[in-house]
Design a protein around this nucleic acid. Structure first.
Lengths: 162, 162
DNA sequence: GAATTAAGGATACATCATATCCGCAAATTG
DNA sequence: CAATTTGCGGATATGATGTATCCTTAATTC
């Protein structure tokens, strides 16, 4: 059970976009260079964010991406689900139905007890991600990243933001 | 991020093994028939349980599997990790290290803030699974499965348990 | 009009889940 | 002892999916 690397990419890109001044856009090219990622493939992850309405886009030179909402209104789960999908990690295939002792036509009223536990764990995972906002991440990063690096990075970004 | 179907298989098989009388074994063949699963492939899942010391095995006719500990000392996470592995679902590839603004030789003291959140969610998932014991599952099933089916299933099982 | 950008389709490749088959060693049965 | 049954591990095949690249199209800027 491994998350796509695109999840990591999307989260870091959103953290950068959160630092953009109002109304400016940052291109796939800049985001790819900043993180050392394959531009064309990163583009797919950003398209997922766009489809989920987490980011706005503009075409043409000086075009690119910006957040569609304030970073305090976007949480980790929004971003993770945009890239990874909303499907649960456990799917119940009802193998108990194959029990040769089972009377034909019998139908369970409740979902399988095994599945309920697995889904509960899935919900715990999602709830943790839901509780952390993108603005929280930016706050943590601004504290932990050395001030000079933080500043020089956003100078680098602003030079490329249209 | 999808769990292997073997996880579902292993959980249901353990629930059956938990109902075996002391000292009896149930074969892969019987477990596969009971759940309508491919015998050879189910065998791989059971081998994983064996390697994790969750079940004991015996060879020969009347051989097979039984739980290695009381069902109250086995939890969902034990079984899930035996099949799925213990690796975290999120791997941090440190893409921030590719930042062209970063001074060479710089080394983070802490793990990446993004990774910490993702790992926290992973822990929440694991904790939920850790809290549910196999004996809890058996208890729930014995309440929810119709009494006749429950009984006839274990008669079926006992006929095949060596 | 030329350059740049996001979007999306087509394609290639590697990895992994799924599945099957085989041979081996151990245990049981007769 | 001989035949059978079983778990175990290796080898192999296949399909789905993650990763990655390339190309075309439409929109935007200068």
């Amino acid at each position: 059970m491994i998350l796509k690397s695109q999840v990591e990419w999307a989260l870091h890109c959103c953290a950068i976009l959160a630092g953009l001044p109002e109304g400016r856009y940052l291109s796939t090219k800049a985001l790819a260079e900043l993180h050392g990622l394959p531009k064309e493939y990163l583009s797919k992850a950003l398209q997922s964010l766009s489809q989920a309405s987490l980011v706005d886009t503009t075409l043409g030179p000086s075009g690119g991406y910006r957040l569609a909402k304030p970073s305090s209104e976007i949480n980790f789960l929004d971003i993770v689900e945009a890239v990874e999908g909303k499907a649960r990690s456990f799917t119940c295939t009802n193998i108990r139905d194959n029990n040769p002792c089972r009377p034909a036509g019998y139908c369970d009223s409740k979902p399988c007890a095994v599945a309920r536990v697995m889904w509960e764990a899935d919900e715990a995972w999602r709830n943790t991600l839901r509780r952390v906002r993108l603005s929280d991440l930016v706050g943590t990063l601004s504290e932990e990243v050395p001030a000079e690096l933080w500043q020089s990075t956003f100078e680098w970004v602003l030079k490329r933001a249209g």
